[in-house]
Design a protein around this nucleic acid. Structure first.
Lengths: 323, 323
DNA sequence: CAGCATATGCTCACCTTGAGCATAAGGAAA
DNA sequence: TTTCCTTATGCTCAAGGTGAGCATATGCTG
């Protein structure tokens, strides 16, 4: 029965404003919404933009995505890359046996933040609203020691066998950085999946009947929080070896602003002088001679991206700690 | 018309024997083959294993893949990761207007080579049969200066505008390493796509009526050579930061053998002593005390993979040149 | 003018990487 | 037995990258 498979596209659209990484969400609907939303999100939960694939329409998947994002939100996407295809059964925690199989090809998109329009209440949300343990800019989040690690420790202790118990502890150590090595910003998905398995997020607690505050972080509909975690990990990794930050800042920017954008996404603070050295000596930017006097201190020079770097260097990214 | 979309899985199954990277191919069929092979490969062209997605069957896409690969080839897959989802129209160079839209979720799998069975003539093929310009182990392939670069230069010269002409030249420089920086082993896909655009591979020459030797390298059916190029690039990248080589070698191996496997995949020769230093000091392997006397020279110690490294180091891969 | 805030320049220790020299230990040839 | 060839293995060194911090510059505010 090939017709019981639905194919659609998901977009994780990221922007950074006010030193906060933001993702574009829609308000989940309350009733079945037909082909445009085949999986049913629990009422009131945020979801990622989703669109069906019209086999007759656009030539490529990416064009399809750009088109319906433009139509439904008014946003013109800049950088777009395919993220992952989610096609397992049980993607909807609230789903039932007869539900159709839904294959979602998820894309990551980076934009300069603008005001979205549309009837589905699109809005920019702080990414860390959904994944609060990922933000280490102010140091280790309290949530970790206060809630996450104790709860995970309990989960490890409930393992059926001693072997599995120590395996769980090892996984906790790697993904949450409690072992010899520290926090690895790129293991976003592994962390979410661990919390999911341990039943610490709303999506993996079927007993939760919609209470928004149960579980860690703010939930999303369907498996969209998993998709978001995948996307965040991907950008974090991508920043290292491709100059994608520049998709997120205006044409002219100060180096500190650029740094703040990177920090917002990676979730850790960076050494200012070294960041400057990296980005300047790496030929990623060039000064414009103009100054920004809004800094509050000594005026900062405004820089712009130097696209020629793409022709000169092999992997022109920002060597961010942990790589 | 959702039922005019077909969803299937493709597997790029890689192994290394005799210092040659190999991919498992099937012989393309001559007639329409129904759901099991919705896209029609040109007769006689090799194709990658393809299986439909049964929405009722396995819980996850990856399990589906493992199962039908086992059933159809007798191979038990080890390491598996999702590669990319190919869903554009015109995936079949020989396709026609009314063809259904086929979405293929492609997976990369690594195995220790075994003998495949099955009715579809599965066989291991040298990856460089299809992408001969990717093998730099014996130095720069002659094919490059003899055929590829002159042909690409011609293509650049035929650009409609001077701007596009210089853009083409820049792309050639980056992907084929003719510029200031050298060969970048990871740009496998970019190179294939450039050759495709330039009409230098069989798949992008509709006029070719099946002559096997027209175009560069050996063709594959549908867009499977593009999928293979994607896979090769992915393994090459993955080797850098994950210990996936060990999926391809027997439990005990000499360091030279390990190096040869890496070299086969990455397509370049490595400095022996440095490779040893990397792999030993990185804690990736441990000596077993046993010796291999088949070396032809001084016997080499047999090593084994040290899985604990996964708990100790952050990104335990092999820092291969170009990263 | 003092004090504050941010920008920007520079140094230094440490580590990694690329490359090569030198020695070890087998087998085969003389 | 000795020599030579082959591969294994150990070690060194220069060059460049990275993490961290000190010092100075330059605006604004009181």
């Amino acid at each position: 029965m090939p017709d019981s498979i639905l194919v659609g596209l998901n977009a994780v659209i990221l922007a950074v404003t006010d030193e906060t990484p933001r993702v574009l969400t829609l308000a989940g609907r309350d009733g079945r919404a037909g082909a445009a939303e085949p999986l049913q999100a629990a009422p009131g939960l945020d979801i990622l933009p989703y669109g069906p694939l019209d086999p007759e329409a656009d030539r490529t998947l990416e064009l399809t995505l750009r088109n319906w994002v433009r139509e439904r939100t008014g946003l013109e996407l800049g950088y777009v890359e395919q993220l992952y295809t989610f096609g397992d059964r049980n993607r909807d925690p609230a789903g039932r046996a007869g539900d159709p199989r839904v294959i979602s090809v998820a894309y990551l998109a980076l934009v300069r933040e603008g005001t979205p329009r549309g009837t589905e209440r699109p809005r920019w949300r702080d990414c860390y609203r959904y994944l609060p343990w990922e933000d280490w800019r102010e140091g280790r989040p309290e949530l970790l020691d206060a809630e996450i690690l104790p709860a995970l420790e309990g989960w490890a202790g409930r393992a059926p066998t001693p072997a599995e118990e120590s395996e769980r502890r090892a996984r906790i150590g790697i993904t949450f950085g409690t072992g010899d090595f520290g926090w690895d910003a790129y293991r976003t998905l592994e962390r979410y999946e661990l919390l999911f398995e341990a039943g610490l997020v709303h999506e993996s607690r079927p007993s939760d009947d919609g209470g928004r505050d149960s579980g860690l972080g703010h939930p999303m509909g369907l498996d969209h929080r998993r998709i978001l975690a995948t996307a965040l990990g991907r950008v974090r990794g991508k920043l290292r070896y491709r100059p994608v930050v520049f998709e997120l800042v205006p044409e002219r920017f100060t180096l500190l602003r650029l740094q703040r954008v990177v920090e917002a996404l990676v979730g850790i603070g960076l050494h200012k002088q070294n960041f400057r050295r990296l980005v300047e000596r790496g030929g990623l930017v060039e000064g414009t001679g103009r100054l920004d006097t809004e800094t509050g201190g000594r005026p900062a020079e405004l820089f712009r991206f130097r696209p020629e770097v793409l022709l000169e260097r092999r992997a022109p990214g920002l060597g961010i700690p942990g790589g």
